[in-house]
Design a protein around this nucleic acid. Structure first.
Lengths: 317, 317
DNA sequence: CTGAAAGCGCTTACAG
DNA sequence: CTGAAAGCGCTTACAG
């Protein structure tokens, strides 16, 4: 049995012919070492857990994909547990479920309240890394980040440079002053001396954007809108279109995410490209460092790119 | 120690006050049982593995979501491993990685060649269930299915009933005669005595649809196109629109999936609604039965729904 | 280079 | 109701 173990784990101190025979037997019997026993005895763990407020939404799914790819290449598996909401009860249930597995470490997607609260509630002493949209790490755990603030500022400045007096903003549901996108939007307005209109709040989906579109259609002072994500922007554009308002001639619209389909829209959407796969890969790399005991696992920040398409133009008149 | 175990596992034979003290100590120390040791000793496994050719694409992500939700409610975690392609090497690597974890069972997403081959290569004796788009189970393992054939037939019949002489079809990449969508399309044409045009093949993404759109714009005999998924349909519609061809007046288009955004498109897309979340939930339920040793875990089939919107109309003239 | 022995952290009969 | 003892299936020093 120790010999089998040595062969399977590639120890060098095994006679070639013995190793050969072991391998044949393993093949013939379809033997697979019991992962639980293996991890218990060796202390080596090969499961990485992702904790997230959702899985199927574009950004979540892509980040998860980035984690999975990086983990697989490193020989590790990834488990996923959804945190249903930011409520204590849901946060605790998700953490309990995750930690019932022999996990090597946890990656938390801090894209929403559920993720933020989960990151806070995780016990000490466990390798943890967060992935999110800040411009610098917030807690004590290392973070892989996308600088939403810079992107929000850039998008807003672009509209201002086109000649718009100000830029309206439809923010996401859980965003307060802590949303990077909203922060960047406000900073750009302040820097330009432009008035800051009331923030419009919406859920992340297109129907929320559509409802705001119905109202914006009746507001004569709106010439440019920066939306917190692409779905909201698309819903908004459809509502405006349904009311005979032309984008971008009457109103310019910018989204956030750069989902694949928004380039096909008519008009195609100007938006901010977030590289979620890269975010997931960076988060995994960081977690590997933490698991490996590297003392100075450094947080990383990347700036997303503004992608200019057809939905933005100078104001008319 | 046995007492602690009994308290944590809710055995009734523990004095209330002792249980109380144990719970307090557990709280204070932040003690969590080692999952590996637990699963090894008890033989109970709480990890379900999903094997899939992708994770972020709409159908995959939604099915995964369905699995995760159902698993979580049953107190189980889910791991995800991507099978990079249908090549032996990738299939084997993915299976090895998955089975290195102490998994209770495997759900294979048979949405593509990678998934189909993975299902075939899984060793005997392991609880396995497949989820896919057939109308009946194909192998010996139980399956949760969506009846794509019926849907493909229904979509095609709908176009025929509108008065189209025939219906063109853009199929997905790996689809041969075994694609339910394509089978259903052909069956409808045959039943109606309509001529079956050459199948057009495309990758699953919008750009593939766009390229076919460029060619179809030059084909005078095309009045209706049934696309294997929504992305292809949207790419096609954009290409037609770019060439001044009106959908649905000049050409009718039907997609497959009913992604959230296609209802917002202009024109909104007639498509087939597949309930992927339900598919994932059914797959997990089936796997639970298999794990539980139920002898007659029955495959389930559901029919997707045709959703009629603006992209389809009678042929002109 | 290769076996016998110990032990990872739990749970489960087993005695009391 | 509650401890002492065995054992799940591996890996890792330890002798040889």
């Amino acid at each position: 049995m120790p010999t089998v173990s040595r062969v399977l784990n590639g120890s060098k101190y095994v006679a070639p012919d013995l190793a050969q025979r072991v391998n044949e037997a393993v093949q013939a019997l379809g033997y697979r070492p019991n992962g639980a026993a293996r991890s218990m005895r060796s202390g080596r763990r090969t499961l990485v857990s992702v904790l997230a407020g959702a899985t199927a939404n574009y950004g979540y799914a892509r980040t998860l994909q980035g984690v999975e790819t990086a983990a697989r290449r490193a020989g590790m598996s990834v488990s996923i547990t959804v945190v249903e909401s930011g409520e204590d009860e849901h946060v605790r249930a998700a953490i309990d479920l995750t930690l019932a597995q022999p996990t090597a470490g946890v990656i938390v997607l801090e894209f929403d309240r559920a993720g933020i609260n989960a990151a806070k509630a995780l016990p000490e002493g466990l390798p943890v890394v967060v992935a999110g949209g800040g411009s610098r790490r917030t807690g004590q755990v290392p973070a892989a980040l996308i600088d939403e603030r810079a992107a929000g500022r850039q998008a807003t400045e672009y509209l201002l440079h086109l000649g718009h007096r100000t830029v309206h903003h439809i923010a996401g549901p859980t965003e307060g002053k802590h949303s990077g996108r909203t922060d960047g939007w406000r900073a750009a307005l302040t820097a330009a001396g432009a008035p800051a209109p009331q923030i419009m709040r919406a859920d992340w989906d297109a129907s929320a954007g559509y409802r705001w579109g119905e109202r914006i259609a009746g507001m004569s002072d709106v010439t440019a809108v920066f939306c917190a994500n692409d779905d909201i922007a698309l819903g908004l554009m459809r509502a405006l279109s349904d009311r005979g308002i032309d984008v971008p001639r009457d109103i310019s619209v910018i989204g956030f995410d750069d989902q694949p389909l928004v380039a096909l829209w008519r008009p195609s959407l100007t938006t901010v490209d977030q590289d979620f796969e890269d975010l997931g890969a960076r988060a995994f790399g960081l977690l590997s460092q933490v698991i490996g005991g590297e003392p100075d696992a450094a947080s990383s920040v990347k700036a997303p790119q503004l992608v200019v398409r057809e939905s933005t133009a100078p104001p008319k008149g």
